[in-house]
Amino acid sequence: MRSIPTALLGALLAVPALAQGTPVHDTLTGVKARGHLVCGVSGGVAGFSMPDGQGHWHGLDVDFCRALAAAIFDDPEKVRFIPQSSAARFTALQSGEIDVLARNTTWTLSRDTAAMNFPVITFFDGQGFLVRKSLNVTQVKQLDRATICLQQGTTTELNTADWFRTRGLSYQVVTFANSEQTLGAYESGRCDAYSTDKSSLYGERLKTAHPEEHVILDEAISKEPFAPGVRQGDDAWRDLVAWTHYAMVDAEEAGIGQANVDEQRQKTLSPDVKRLLGLEGRYGRGLGLTDDWAYRIVHHVGNYGDAFSRNLGEATPLKIPRGLNALWTRGGLQYGPPIR
């Protein structure tokens, strides 16, 4: 999603120094020398990245950066978070202002070829629909002839038009400039449904007066894979970012979480777990790290399931189901290659 002022600013006023900055070819060395990681986040999406009252950052994207810092420095606090507007985010990465962009960014071909590399998908999202429970709608196609509220200037507008047209269905659209107006119109009865990324809909539902009266349909009408972004041409850094996520997924699959990682490290007999926690083999070296890199991640931040339930899961107000983000062994798409 982009907004008008930022798009304008991006087009007209982009600071030349940022656009011209020479790409850093060895990000890891730079990060180690600096003593902390610089991570670009959205800064305002509940469950993904948001500072609390004390200025401490929380969210799935935030935890990903903390895991990266834990792997490098054995300290999840050695990260500086810089909120990025959607218009400025790619420039910030290219210019070297940030080391990694963890900002619920959808991985698309044009972004991959033009702007950056996407090492790994950390969250599988899609465009969803929020409707009133009283409508008794369970599938998107039942919204034929309904009125739908959308935020304008987003891919949501295009996806919705395509989806309904290709199925021979019709709908009435009402678009608004920002999400507050869109939600307000939906809530006051102007529309039957409100559509945007599913991960955002859970937060939007919480803002309504009676969240229990609204339901988010299971179906998604588009693919929105969120991936961290790194600069092109730095393969070692790309590997490290990808394997930080894979280590968290592999740990969850092996049943190693923040709660039991120290105990398991003492008494495990499984060779898979031993390799993961750096007790066997020398797998950290290839990444430019110590061999206990994955242990540090799980010890400080937890596995993927820990991070998910802490920020998005049933225990949080958002209550986002794992869905596509469940492990592959449980019908989801999260799959980590073997560490060996």
Partner: peptide, 19 residues
């Protein structure tokens, strides 16, 4: 633009510019 009526500014500055 503040109440979602598709006038020139709403359509052109809102959607066309961003797309």
């Amino acid at each position: 633009v503040l109440i979602g009526y598709p006038d020139l500014v709403h359509v052109v500055m809102g959607t066309v510019l961003n797309q």
